[in-house]
């Protein structure tokens, strides 16, 4: 049912796997540590009003593993190249978890091609005494359970029979995340001091029961990023766009409409 095209595009010599569907203002969704689980209902819903792009970051999923990628800064610069090459303007940038961190790294460098920023359970900064859960040390099964409030989502994932290719991607994604975020653990100590450079309307969306990145971070981002709004999604963990698709899409659309008005 996926109303999207999937292709591998070339960005300055790096092959990037891109899902794209719908029409309207461009929206770029940046995935988190575990990659993209296909064209989920949330993407379908967002693509009804937007030209939605959901890439696999380099080294993740089906994208290339480029030599040049040594850290989050490199990835942010890569996405600025991507925006230039695709000649995208007025982009609504959405990032979940590690992708939220990446979205901020992009935005503090250059907002000119952006129209809004949406952070969903974003990593990237550290509140002293409130570490992001150590997703590397946790048993992967436990991790899946911690991500969701509704354990039926976890059951579905844990009961899935993975193909060899899916298994490889899972391992690759895990390694890619460690490459970007092992030390310091999933944040950039310098990011906080540059967040004032985000000059587009910013929406902070959080699962009210996020056990990976504590909801305290939602409040923190709301405080640091000038003019940002915070929306808590009820009965959602770290992936509210999966667990509470409808309220999530409503929240995203509502915010963007209010800013467009």
């Amino acid at each position: 049912m996926a109303d999207c095209t999937e292709s591998k595009i070339d960005i300055r010599g790096t092959g990037m796997y891109l899902r794209r569907g719908g029409s309207g203002e461009p929206m770029l969704f940046l995935h988190g540590a575990s990659g993209v689980a296909g064209w989920i209902p949330t993407f379908q819903a967002l693509s009804e009003t937007h030209d939605l792009m959901v890439p696999d970051h380099p080294t993740y999923g089906l994208s290339d593993e480029p030599e040049w990628l040594d850290g989050m800064e490199d990835l942010a610069m890569f996405y600025l190249d991507f925006l230039d090459q695709m000649n995208l303007e007025g982009v609504h940038l959405v990032g979940n978890s590690l992708g939220g961190w990446l979205a901020m790294e992009i935005a503090v460098r250059n907002c000119t091609r952006l129209k809004s920023l949406t952070l969903v359970g974003a990593a990237g900064i550290r509140i002293a005494g409130k570490p992001i859960a150590d997703i590397f040390m946790m048993d992967p099964d436990d991790l899946v359970r911690e991500i969701f409030v509704d354990q039926s989502y976890a059951d579905n994932i844990l009961n899935m029979e993975l193909t060899e290719e899916q298994l490889d991607i899972q391992i690759r994604n895990r390694v890619a995340t460690a490459r970007l975020g092992w030390q310091p653990r999933l944040f950039n100590p310098n990011l906080r001091k540059w967040l004032h450079r985000i000059t587009v309307p910013t929406h902070v969306i959080w699962g009210d029961t996020d056990k990976i990145v504590d909801p305290a971070y939602a409040a923190e981002f709301g405080k640091i990023i000038a003019g940002s709004e915070v929306t808590m999604i009820e009965k959602a963990g770290h992936l509210p766009h999966i667990e509470q698709s409808e309220p999530f899409v409503e929240a995203v659309s509502g915010f963007l409409q209010s800013k467009a008005a």
């Binding site: 550290r126 002293a128 005494g129 570490p131 150590d134 030390q183 310091p184």
Partner: peptide, 11 residues
């Protein structure tokens, strides 16, 4: 314990 310094950071 986690040490959350400016120059040193250890989980």
């Amino acid at each position: 314990f986690a040490f959350e310094g400016k120059h040193y950071h250890f989980e």
